[in-house]
């Protein structure tokens, strides 16, 4: 499979009044053409910062990429000029954000907001841009596109606005679509529709998708590969099958256990992982999960575990992989919604 994007040892910090936040600490992953990679993890684990780094949209100051490379089409985006980034953003890499209610400009018609990027990037005239924008609105399933084109965001429901965001992100036919929790703010039924829509469009356009979510159910539905993030690091990555059925990391087990299951009554409590994520102001020297991990050993608190290659596609960073560790057997019950 053709490699499209390679993130290598990415480090991002924020200088705040309270101190330096190490939001992303050595993240590496790759994205292939046409595939969907899911990045999962609790809130605060550094998923959005990773995505913003790829777009070079980290608010700076206070944010800064301190180390690492982001290779895309032969360029390192970390080093790329501002001008180069303007040409890549919105044209080669598109983004959809979490909250469709606040992500559209309230004082510009939806049609204009879609056309704007097209005219800027593709140097096409208004007429062609309008044609393309209408085409996109139709593609994302917005009824009466001709009429909707001239309306303002407040005249759309949340789900419809997210469709508009998708139309906008895909209008220039980007190679990569980054979707940062695109369905988190939506009703469950609308969530399913939006995910389905993204998959359908992906089939047509062959856009590679980085789907950021904290919801494993979403991952199972749409992704081929998963990266599990925790405390600014990727702790496990692999194909969906591998991470769902043959997971090797205690944090992934915890995530699985906290997922709603079909055999569970609605009012039954989910089983959240006890404890809180590590303090990124002063991250522990060892495994970020050590304080909450039921299997934590002495070494876990002291030293970062190495990444172990479980299979050509499956990697895990955990001391349990070390031959000296006592073997544990955790049966993971998985049930996809």
């Amino acid at each position: 499979m053709a490699r499209l994007l390679e993130v290598d040892n990415l480090h991002v910090t924020f200088e705040t009044y309270a101190g330096k936040v190490h939001a992303v600490r050595g993240v590496s992953f790759t994205l292939n053409k046409g595939e969907t990679l899911a990045i999962v993890g609790e809130s605060g684990s550094g998923k959005s910062v990773t995505a913003q780094s790829i777009m070079r949209l980290i608010p700076s100051p206070p944010g800064k990429i301190t180390e690492g490379r982001i290779l895309f089409e032969g360029d390192d985006l970390v080093q790329a000029s501002k001008k180069k980034m303007l040409r890549i953003r919105g044209s080669k890499i598109g983004v959809i954000f979490q909250d469709p209610m606040t992500s559209l400009n309230p004082t510009m018609t939806v049609g204009k907001q879609i056309m704007e990027g097209l005219i800027w990037h593709q140097k096409i005239n208004r007429h062609e841009a309008q044609k393309r924008a209408l085409e996109m609105l139709r593609l994302v399933g917005i009824p009466n596109p001709e009429q909707r084109f001239h309306q303002y965001p407040h005249e759309f429901s949340g789900g419809m606005r997210q469709r508009v965001m998708i139309a906008m992100a895909l209008a220039s036919d980007p190679k990569i679509l980054i979707a940062d929790e695109p369905t988190t703010a939506l009703d469950v039924t609308i969530q399913a529709q939006i995910l389905e829509l993204m998959q359908e469009i992906q089939k047509e356009t062959e856009t590679a998708i980085i789907l950021i979510t904290h919801d494993l159910g979403v991952v199972a539905e749409v992704a081929q590969r998963v990266a599990v993030m925790y405390g600014g690091k990727i702790v496990e990555t692999g194909e969906v099958e591998e991470v769902f059925y043959r997971s090797r990391h205690p944090y992934t087990w915890g995530l699985m256990a906290s997922m709603p299951r079909l055999d569970q009554r609605r009012d039954q409590e989910l089983e959240p992982i006890p404890g809180t994520p590590p303090d990124l102001y002063d991250p522990p020297p060892g495994c970020p999960f050590a304080d909450r991990c039921p299997y934590a050993m002495f070494i876990c608190h002291e030293q970062m575990p190495e990444t172990t290659q479980v299979s050509p596609t499956h990697q895990v960073a955990c001391w349990l992989e070390d031959p000296r560790a006592t073997p544990v057997n955790k049966e993971v019950k998985v049930n996809i919604r």
Binding site: L86, I88, F97, S103, N105
Partner: peptide, 23 residues
């Protein structure tokens, strides 16, 4: 958020200001 959206479209800062922030 919508300013971040405008930036993510790859619009230059001047246009982000005149068309999205100012109004």
């Amino acid at each position: 958020d919508y300013i971040r959206t405008a930036q993510a479209k790859g619009l230059p800062p001047v246009r982000v200001f005149t068309h999205h922030i100012l109004r």
